[in-house]
Design a protein around this nucleic acid. Structure first.
Length: 181
DNA sequence: TGCACGATGAAC
DNA sequence: TTCATCGTGCAC
């Protein structure tokens, strides 16, 4: 299977562009692989829905670091969420991976950020991991048919005031593995 | 040093 | 609609 790893330049671009282009790419962790079918963009310190909105802290400094690294955190004490850091160093932006389509060695459901990480065996130990590595990365998959991208408001960010309705969630239209309608 | 609260998922 | 479960951020 063609597995051309995405270069760091891919991530060092506008977050919305990176988010849209991550759809259809292959997330690889060791023996596990899945096709990314749903993502959300988190734009930086001005984005009230983003963890980076409170500035640089021990937790968010990875978001403000160089692009192409994983930001993995524990949510609700029991699930992990995985993001990829985007844009230049100094900008606290990232793309949350919300759902994948199983490709290799995946058991269990993958529709939702917590289920995705569980199925891919991704946890807090992979926080700050360089996605240019050989054990954990995102790659261009094999050629596939073109698809339509659906834009919707992000999930679970009711507190984010004027950012609540911004269309920063993207998914592959009609894909059966997206997390919600 | 303490405490309220999630970028969730599953059950009721 | 409620609950499980714990690290983070901010108040005190």
């Amino acid at each position: 299977m063609l597995m051309h790893k995405l270069p760091r330049d891919f991530y060092e671009r506008d977050t919305v562009l990176v988010a849209r282009e991550l759809l259809g790419k292959y997330l690889v962790h060791g023996e596990f692989a899945g096709k990314i079918v749903e993502v959300e963009g988190y734009l930086g310190q001005q984005d009230l829905a983003s963890h980076s909105s409170r500035g640089i802290t021990k937790r968010t400094e990875v978001m403000y670091g160089p692009p192409g690294y994983a930001y993995v955190y524990l949510i609700y004490g029991m699930y992990h969420c995985m993001n990829v850091v985007t844009e230049a160093k100094g900008i606290g932006s990232a793309v949350l991976l919300r759902a994948i389509e199983p490709v290799k060695n995946i058991t269990g459901r993958t529709q939702g950020p917590g289920l995705l990480t569980k199925a891919m065996h991704i946890d807090i130990r992979l926080n700050r991991h360089d996605l240019q590595s050989n054990d954990f990365f995102i790659a261009e998959g094999p050629p596939q048919l073109p698809f339509v991208i659906v834009e919707k408001p992000r999930i679970g960010i009711h507190f984010a005031q004027e950012w609540v309705e911004k269309p920063l969630r993207f998914y592959i239209k009609d894909n059966p593995f997206i997390s919600k309608l």
